[in-house]
Simulated assay, not measured.
Amino acid sequence: MRLIEKVWFYRHPAKWALVPLLLPLTALFWLITSLRRFLYRCGVKSSTSPALPVMVIGNIGIGGNGKTPLTLYLIEQCERLGIKVGIISRGYGGKAPHYPYLINEYSTAAQAGDEPQMIFDRSGVPIAVGSDRIASIALLAEQGCQLVLADDGLQHYKMKRNAEVIVVDGKRKFGNGLLLPAGPLREGKWRLSSVDFIVVNGKSEADTGAAHKPSSSQENNVQNADDFSGLTTPVLAMDLAPSQFINLATGEAIGVDEFIEINSTVNAIAAIGDPARFFTTLEQCKLTLNKAQGFVDHHAFTAQELTELSASMPLVMTEKDAVKCQAFAQENWWYLAVNATFEVTDAELLHQQLKRLVSTC
Rank of each mutant, 00 (worst) to 15 (best):
C325I: 06
K84W: 06
N290C: 03
E187Q: 11
P53G: 02
S49F: 07
S204T: 12
S204W: 09
G170K: 04
I119S: 01
M55I: 10
S243A: 11
V125T: 03
N332W: 06
A322T: 04
V316T: 09
D226Y: 05
G183H: 03
L349M: 13
Y10C: 12
C42D: 09
Q330T: 14
V199C: 07
P314K: 08
Y73G: 00
A109E: 12
V148L: 10
L3I: 14
E5P: 07
V358G: 02
A268N: 04
L35M: 11
L357E: 10
I87Y: 06
S243G: 00
G94E: 07
R36G: 01
L21R: 01
L349H: 10
L179P: 00
I83A: 08
R11Y: 14
L287S: 06
E105C: 06
A128Q: 12
T360C: 05
E308P: 10
F328I: 04
N221Q: 12
L25A: 15
P184S: 06
C285M: 14
K189P: 08
K158D: 07
K189D: 09
G255F: 10
D196Y: 04
L21W: 13
N221C: 06
A329V: 11
L179M: 00
L70H: 05
G251A: 09
D169F: 10
Q352W: 00
R37N: 00
L154I: 06
R80Q: 14
A270M: 06
L28V: 15
F120S: 08
F228I: 11
P69W: 02
V316M: 09
V235S: 07
E115N: 15
V148K: 06
E283N: 06
L336D: 13
I127D: 08
L180V: 12
E348F: 08
A163T: 00
T341Y: 02
N65A: 10
G188W: 13
P126T: 00
P97L: 08
N263W: 13
M55A: 14
I127K: 01
I272Y: 07
G153I: 13
T48V: 15
C325L: 04
E343D: 15
M55G: 08
E79W: 04
L74F: 04
F29D: 03
V167M: 01
Q293I: 15
A150M: 14
F245G: 10
H299V: 00
L306D: 10
T250F: 13
D297P: 01
G294I: 02
R122G: 05
I119F: 12
A337V: 02
K291P: 04
F120M: 07
Y10F: 15
N267D: 03
N104T: 09
